[in-house]
Simulated scan of single mutants.
Amino acid sequence: MSKRPNPELIDDTNPEWTDDEFKRAVPFNKLPASLQGKVRGRPKAEVTKERISIRLSPEVVAAFKQEGSGWQTRIDEALKQYLKEHKDDHRKHA
């Protein structure tokens, strides 16, 4: 078996690392922020929501989904509004 690399797989603009280059390498998260560039993904929220499982009637889900994307956020807002309007009711049951 030949130890020569397949010439079609050789990339002169991106040569294989030497042992010395591997020794000097550092993890990406250890690089200075100026070299890391823009952080990908969604920014971290200051206030996070709690992930739960909830069972809702099909007509409630359909009505919120019918308004398009963001339906879960609209359900959250509707529940917050309910709490504001029934603040005293909840204190009685707590």
Results as ranks from 00 to 15, higher is better:
74 R>I: 01
45 A>N: 12
72 Q>H: 11
94 A>L: 15
10 I>K: 14
27 P>V: 00
59 E>G: 05
41 G>N: 01
86 H>W: 02
53 S>G: 10
58 P>F: 00
52 I>M: 08
5 P>R: 00
38 K>S: 04
91 R>H: 12
37 G>C: 10
23 K>Y: 05
22 F>P: 03
87 K>C: 06
31 L>W: 14
38 K>C: 03
35 L>T: 09
54 I>H: 06
67 E>N: 07
86 H>K: 07
60 V>R: 08
3 K>R: 02
11 D>G: 08
84 K>A: 11
91 R>N: 11
71 W>V: 00
71 W>D: 05
68 G>I: 00
56 L>Y: 09
61 V>W: 04
78 A>S: 14
80 K>P: 05
54 I>S: 05
31 L>D: 06
75 I>H: 04
51 R>M: 11
38 K>Y: 01
93 H>A: 02
84 K>D: 13
39 V>H: 01
76 D>E: 07
4 R>A: 05
79 L>F: 04
33 A>K: 13
76 D>M: 01
3 K>I: 05
26 V>F: 07
82 Y>Q: 06
82 Y>T: 09
55 R>E: 13
74 R>S: 08
4 R>V: 06
90 H>W: 07
71 W>C: 04
25 A>D: 13
77 E>H: 07
51 R>L: 12
63 A>Q: 11
71 W>Q: 06
29 N>H: 14
47 V>Y: 03
43 P>E: 01
30 K>N: 09
65 K>L: 01
68 G>F: 00
31 L>V: 05
29 N>P: 07
84 K>F: 06
24 R>V: 05
89 D>T: 06
66 Q>S: 13
8 E>A: 15
34 S>W: 10
93 H>N: 07
63 A>Y: 13
25 A>N: 09
46 E>A: 15
65 K>N: 06
84 K>I: 10
6 N>E: 07
9 L>Y: 04
53 S>Q: 13
60 V>F: 05
71 W>K: 07
84 K>T: 10
90 H>G: 04
9 L>R: 15
87 K>A: 15
35 L>I: 08
90 H>C: 08
61 V>A: 10
18 T>D: 10
93 H>W: 07
8 E>C: 02
72 Q>L: 04
8 E>H: 06
80 K>T: 15
19 D>P: 14
48 T>F: 00
21 E>I: 08
